[in-house]
Amino acid sequence: MWNNIRSMFTAKSSREVAKGRLQLVLAHDRTGLEGGRLQEMREEIAKVIARYVQIDAEAVEIEIETRSRETQLTVSSRIQTRTAT
C-alpha cells in the first residue's frame, strides 16, 4: 500500500510522458527509415561485426536519439572475448 501511495507521488505527469513519447517518435521519423528497414540494418550490421569478432547477433542494439535538430544513431554490441569463452 505504501508503495502505491509513493508511486502516486512519483508517477510521471502526462506532460512528461508526452515529451518522452514525442522524443522517441521523432527520433524514428527523422531517420526516414520505415517499416522493417531498421531491423534489416541491425541484422546487416550484426553480420559485419560477426565477421571480425564473436557476438551474439541478438545482442546488437540500435539506439536513435534526437536533440535540437540533430539525430544520433548508436550501435552497441557486447562481444564475446576470448578469455570469457
Partner: peptide
Amino acid sequence: KRGDMLSQSDVIEILA
C-alpha cells in the same frame, strides 16, 4: 501548471 500539458519551452526544445 498541473503537469497535464506540454509547456511552451517543451515545444521549442523539441522542434528547435
